[in-house]
Nucleic acid binder design. Structure first.
Lengths: 233, 233
DNA sequence: GTGACAAATAAGTCTGACTTTTTGTGAGCG
DNA sequence: CGCTCACAAAAAGTCAGACTTATTTGTCAC
C-alpha cells in the first residue's frame, strides 16, 4: 500500500513514527539525535534526516541545547497520510477511524453534489461501472471484490468533485473502507440498502442532480457512522 | 504566524517550497542535490535535509541515478499547513482560496452540529463572547477587530466539535478569513446578515440545537462561497 | 533486434572536526 | 536572601571529503 522504508532514513521513520503516534513517547519527552542514531544503528546524518521529516509533520521539535522534543498530539499534522497510516496501525486506531468517518460524513456529500455538476461523461461511466461491480459482488461473500469497487466508487466521486482537496482524501477513504472490511467484523454481505444507495448516487450524478446526489451520499455516510456506533458505542 | 527559516535547511525551504508550489518547476522537472546545494550556498547535508522535507510533503521524489524529481500537483500534500501557506503566498492563491472555501463549506456546518452536542459551558461562553465582539466591530470600519473575533468564533466551533481533524482546520480557516479581509476587496463593513447568523449559531450551540446550528452555519459558508463567485466568477 | 555486460552518474551513507546557540550554574554583589 | 552577569557545558547545526550502491544507459557481441 504505502512505500515502506525508502532508504535508511525511511526505515528509521517506519519504526520511530508509529512509536511516537502510538504514544510511546508522551508529549514533552526529550530524545537526543546521537542516542537515536546509536539505537537505530545509523549515522547521524541519516538520523537527522529522519528527525527533519518528523519535524515537518509536527510530531517533534528540534531545539539546540535541549534535544528533540516530542510534541503533544494537538500539534500533529493529522492530515498527513503517513501519520494517518501510522495511527491506523497502532493503538490509536479506533479514535482515528472515528475521526476519519466523521470527516467523510462531512466531505463526501458535498463532493457528490459537486460531482453531479462537474463530472465528465467518462467519470459518469466509471461511476456506473463501479456501482455495477458493487452489485455484482454484493451477495455470496465476495467481500474483496466488493471492497475494490466501493473504494473506486468513492475515489471517482471525490475526484469528479473538481476540488483538489477533496480528491486528495481518496486514499484516506480507501484506508477507512479497507479497515472496515479487514479489521472490523464484517462476516456477512454488505447492507443491500447501501448498495442501492450507491447505484442511485451514480444515477443522480449522471443526471446532474446535485441535491439528490448530496442527499443520497449523506445517507451512505450516515450509515457508516451508525455502523461505528454499533461497534464501539 | 508561521515559523520562518529555522536553521539553514529552513531557509532553503522558504525559498524552494514556494518556487515549486508556484509552478516554477513543472511536474517532472529534475533537480540535482549538488547543484541545489551550490545554488543556495549550503552544504549537501543541509540540502539533503531540505529535500527530505519536500519529499515528505510529496512535492518531490528523490531517486538514485536520476535526481530530485518534482512531482505533479496531484501528488502534493495539499493539507500540509506549510504547503497551504506557500500556495496562498504565490500565484496559486485564487485557486487555493477557492478550494479552502469549498472545504470550509463542507466541514463547518457538520462541526457546528457536533459542537451543539459536545460544547462545554466554557466553550459556549467563549462563543457568545466572540459573537458579541463581532457585533461590536460590525459597523464603522473596524475590520481588524471584526476579523479577530470572527477567527476566534470559527476556531471555537471547530475545537468544540470534539473532532481532532476538524480542530486542526482552525489555522486554515484563520488564513482564509484573514485573506478575505486583507487581500480581497473589503472596503465596507461586513454583511449584517452574516453577523446575525453568527449570533444565532452561538445561541443554537448554547441551546444544544444541532440541526439548527448546522443549518445556520451552512448559510454562513454559503455566503462565503457566493462572495467568492462575485469576486472571481 | 536482443540480450548481457560494463561504465557512468547521482543519490545515499559514514565519519570526524568544527560552530553556534541555549541553558544552567555559580561567583560576586547589592 | 535574591539578583545579575559571565562562563562553561551540552546538544543541535554545519561543513567537507571519501566512499558505497543502485540505476540507467550505452555498447558490443551474438
Amino acid at each position: 500500500m504505502s512505500t515502506p522504508g525508502r532508504g535508511l532514513h525511511g526505515r528509521v521513520l517506519d519504526s520511530l513514527g508509529p512509536a511516537i503516534t502510538a504514544g510511546d513517547y508522551p508529549g514533552g519527552s526529550v530524545l537526543r539525535t546521537d542516542e537515536l542514531a546509536q539505537r537505530f544503528e545509523v549515522s547521524r546524518s541519516v538520523m537527522r534526516e529522519a528527525v527533519r521529516v518528523l519535524e515537518s509533520m509536527h510530531l517533534v521539535e528540534s531545539r539546540r541545547r535541549v534535544g528533540v522534543t516530542v510534541l503533544p498530539k494537538s500539534a500533529w499534522n493529522v492530515y498527513d497520510p503517513q501519520v494517518i497510516r501510522w495511527r491506523l496501525a497502532g493503538t490509536d486506531r479506533p479514535r482515528q477511524l472515528r475521526s476519519l468517518t466523521v470527516l467523510r460524513s462531512a466531505i463526501e456529500p458535498v463532493a457528490a453534489g459537486l460531482a453531479a455538476q462537474h463530472a465528465t461523461a467518462e467519470q459518469c461511466a466509471e461511476l456506473t461501472e463501479c456501482a455495477l461491480g458493487m452489485v455484482a459482488n454484493s451477495r455470496g461473500h465476495k467481500l474483496e471484490g466488493y471492497l475494490v469497487h466501493d473504494v473506486a466508487f468513492h475515489r471517482v466521486i471525490l475526484t469528479a468533485s473538481g476540488n483538489e482537496m477533496f480528491a486528495r482524501l481518496g486514499d484516506v477513504v480507501a484506508e477507512v473502507l479497507a479497515g472496515r472490511t479487514h479489521h472490523e467484523v464484517m462476516f456477512e454481505d454488505p447492507d443491500p440498502a447501501a448498495v442501492t444507495l450507491h447505484v442511485q448516487v451514480a444515477e443522480a450524478v449522471r443526471g446532474g442532480d446535485a441535491a439528490r446526489a448530496e442527499q443520497l451520499t449523506r445517507e451512505i455516510t450516515e450509515g457508516a457512522l451508525q455502523e461505528l456506533d454499533i461497534l464501539a458505542p
